[in-house]
Design a protein around this nucleic acid. Structure first.
Lengths: 233, 233
DNA sequence: GCAAAAGTGTTTCTACTACACCCATGG
DNA sequence: CCATGGGTGTAGTAGAAACACTTTTGC
C-alpha cells in the first residue's frame, strides 16, 4: 500500500477465491507472518483490503483480485457483510493491520465477495512480499485463520453452493477451458454434496446447450483417455 | 436518536420491509419532510439507521425494526451492501442526515436487510415524529425515494423472490396466521411472477406437510366463504 | 492380460401441465 | 335468481432415478 493513497479505515472487502484442481475445491489464501515476543507466528488470511476513500465496493474487490493475481475478468460476487464488533478485537490482528496500513484502526465492517478462478491460469503476484497459495478447502477448515475469516469462508462456500444450483454455468468459471465430463461431475458433486450416477449425469449435461464436445482427448493418463469438452455461451 | 448514544457514522443498515394485504405486496416506508428554501419537500425513505459504535449489523437491523414497529421475532435477512461513493452525495440527503444525527456525515456504506411482516399485526410506532405507512410496491417504484433506496428495494425484491422459491415457508411470514389458499396462491404468483392453475396449485400445497386445514371459514365475504388454513412447522 | 477409468440404454417413478364444470353464499 | 369466487379429477408429458456391463489404453 502506498502512502499517498487515502483509505477509509472503517470498511474493508475480503475475497474468498475458489479454484478447482480436477479433484478438490481450493482456496487462495495469503500467508501472514507476525513477530510476537521474538517468536514468529504464522497464519493465513483472505485476500482483502480496506477500501479507498472514494471507491465503490465492487471496485475495491476487483482491485484486491487484480493486485494479487494480475488477472482481469474474474467472476466476482458480493455475498455477505460481517460487522461483529468483536471481529477486529484480537490484538494480533489489530497490530498487524495498523502496521500494514499505517493507520489507526478501530472497528471494521467487511464486505465479503466470492471469486472463481481457473486454477491453471498463471497467477502473477504483483508484490513479492506477500505469498499466496492454493490450499485444499478441507485443510483450510482446520487451519488458524486471521479475524473471522473462517466464518467468511464457510458462508462463501454456502453461497457458491446455492448460486451454482441456480446458475450451472458458474461451474465453468472453475473448470479449465478444456475439461472432461468426469471433472465436471466431480466439481458438480463436490458443490452439491451429491454422488450423481455416471450415466444420468452425462445424459443431463450433454443436452445443456452450452456444452460443446471437442475432437480432442485427454493426454498423458495411464488409462483410456477421456474426450474433452468446452463451454460456449 | 438520543444524544448520549455513540454512533459509527460510516456504516448504516436499511430495512426493506415487505407486507401482503391479500392482494398486493406492500412496503413500509417512512415519510420525510425537508424544508428547502422556504418550501417543504416530501419524499419517502427506507427505515434505517447508522449503526452504534459497538453494535453488530444484525442487531442494528433488529433495533431499527423494533424502534419502528414495536414488534419482535420478525423474519430478517441481510441481502446486500451498497457502497457507491455517490450514494450519499445528494445535498438534500446529506443535510437531512446531519440534522437528524447531529453528526458530520461523509460517505456511508449501507448494509441492507429484507424483513417480512404480517400486515395485520398492529404496529405501535414508538416515535410520533416519524410517520410510516404501507405502500403498494407498484406505486413505490414510481415514487421519489431518498438516497439509492430505489435500487435497494429492487435488489431486496429480487432477493425475496429467490429465497421464497428455495424456502416456500417464507410465504407464511407474510400471510396472516389464518389464510385461504387463494391468498397463498396470490402471494405465490406475485412473488414468482407466474399465474398458477387453481387446481394444480391446490394439489401442490395441500401436500406440503406444514399446511394445516382448520375447521373454520372466512367471514364477511359476499360469496361462498373459503376454508382457512394455518402454517405449522 | 490386467488395472483403471471411459462410456453407453432401458425401465420406473414422480412431479408438473393442461383443461371445464358444479357449489355455496350474500344480496 | 344471479353474480362472485370456492372447490374439485383425470390424462398426458417430461425430467429424474435406478441399475450393470463393455470399451479403450498404458503398463
Amino acid at each position: 500500500m502506498s502512502n499517498d493513497t487515502i483509505y477509509n479505515p472503517h470498511v474493508s472487502v475480503d475475497c474468498v477465491i475458489f479454484g478447482f484442481d480436477g479433484e478438490k475445491l481450493k482456496l487462495l489464501l495469503i500467508e501472514r507472518t507476525i513477530s510476537e515476543q521474538n517468536e514468529l507466528y504464522n497464519d493465513k488470511k483472505l485476500p482483502g483490503s480496506i477500501i479507498l476513500a472514494d471507491e465503490d465496493l465492487d471496485d475495491a474487490a476487483n482491485r484486491v483480485l487484480n493486485e494479487l493475481t494480475g488477472l482481469k475478468n474474474i467472476y466476482l460476487s458480493q455475498f455477505h457483510s460481517f460487522g461483529n464488533p468483536r471481529r477486529t478485537e484480537n490484538p494480533r490482528d489489530v497490530l498487524w493491520l495498523e502496521k500494514t496500513t499505517q493507520l489507526k484502526i478501530g472497528r471494521i465492517v467487511t464486505v465479503a465477495y466470492v471469486a472463481m478462478i481457473k486454477i491453471d491460469r498463471k497467477i502473477q503476484f504483483k508484490s513479492d512480499q506477500t505469498s499466496a497459495n492454493w490450499y485444499d478447502l478441507n485443510e483450510v477448515q482446520k487451519m488458524n485463520l486471521a479475524f473471522d475469516h473462517a466464518d467468511i469462508i464457510n458462508k462463501g462456500l454456502e453461497h457458491i453452493r446455492h448460486k451454482s444450483e441456480i446458475e450451472p454455468h458458474l461451474l465453468f468459471e472453475l473448470l479449465p477451458r478444456k475439461f472432461t465430463i468426469t471433472q465436471l461431475q466431480t466439481l458438480y458433486d463436490t458443490l452439491h454434496q451429491t454422488k450423481s450416477d455416471v450415466r444420468n449425469f452425462r445424459k443431463k449435461v450433454v443436452q445443456w446447450p452450452y456444452i460443446v464436445a471437442l475432437d480432442e482427448l485427454e493426454e498423458g493418463v495411464p488409462h483410456r483417455a477421456a474426450r474433452l469438452y468446452k463451454y460456449k455461451k
